[in-house]
Simulated scan of single mutants.
Amino acid sequence: MKKFLLMCCFLMGIAAVSHAQGGGGMRKSPEDRAKDLKAQLSLTDDQTAKVTAIYKEQAAKMDSVRTAANGDRSAMRTAMMPMMKATNDKIKAVLTTDQAAAYEKAQKERMEKMRQGGGQGGGGGGSQN
Rank of each mutant, 00 (worst) to 15 (best):
M1E: 07
K2N: 02
K3E: 07
F4E: 07
F4M: 15
L6N: 04
M7E: 03
M7A: 14
C9G: 14
C9T: 02
C9I: 04
F10H: 03
F10W: 11
M12P: 03
V17N: 08
G22Y: 10
G25E: 11
K28H: 14
S29A: 13
D32S: 15
D32F: 12
R33H: 09
K35C: 04
L37H: 02
L37Q: 04
Q40V: 01
S42H: 09
S42A: 13
L43F: 04
D46W: 01
Q47M: 01
A49W: 02
T52I: 06
T52M: 11
T52S: 10
T52L: 06
A53D: 10
A53C: 09
Q58D: 07
Q58N: 12
Q58Y: 10
A59F: 09
M62R: 09
S64W: 06
S64D: 14
V65G: 12
A69Q: 13
N70M: 13
G71A: 10
S74A: 14
A79H: 03
A79C: 11
A79I: 02
P82Y: 08
M83H: 03
M83K: 02
M83I: 02
A86R: 03
K90V: 00
I91C: 00
A93L: 00
V94E: 03
V94D: 00
V94M: 04
A100P: 03
A102S: 15
Y103T: 00
E104V: 00
K105N: 08
K105H: 08
A106V: 06
R110T: 09
M111L: 14
R115E: 11
R115L: 13
Q120I: 05
G123A: 08
G123F: 07
G125A: 09
G125K: 11
